[in-house]
């Protein structure tokens, strides 16, 4: 597990998650985040720009040229560090979910 202390915000989590399987450009990330969350999570342009800039500075994602020749859009891809951060966060959320299930089922000791 990587050495990270603070949980990710919802926007950061969805951006990393949407980049897990393949590089995507910003709008595609926003659309996939909305689809994965059932329309509940919407990442605005300002939030997206700030989050991607911050994550590039931290080394979690990097820019890469997209496909499409002259009309190619800027894409982002997950780095190894970003992948580790994402997997840590998923494990943390799983633990939280398990703890919640135990309490709800009345089996917490």
């Amino acid at each position: 597990m990587s050495d990270r202390q603070e949980p990710l915000t919802e926007s950061y989590f969805y951006i990393l998650l949407c980049l897990y399987d393949e590089p995507r450009h910003g709008y595609a990330v926003m659309q996939r985040a909305a689809a994965l969350s059932g329309g509940k999570v919407r990442i605005g342009s300002g939030t997206m720009y700030g989050a991607t800039g911050n994550m590039m500075r931290k080394g979690w994602i990097e820019e890469c040229p997209g496909d499409g020749g002259f009309t190619r859009r800027r894409e982002y891809r997950l780095t190894d560090a970003g992948r580790a951060i994402l997997l840590d966060e998923i494990e943390r959320l799983r633990q939280l979910s398990r703890a919640a299930e135990l309490v709800m089922e009345g089996d917490a000791t």
Binding site: T9, S11, R42, I43, G44, G46, T47, G50, A51
Partner: peptide, 16 residues
């Protein structure tokens, strides 16, 4: 109206 917000979460808005 949410379509016309550029900051959709509090942490990014505070950062701005």
């Amino acid at each position: 109206e949410e379509e016309y917000l550029i900051y959709t979460d509090e942490p990014s808005f505070q950062a701005m």
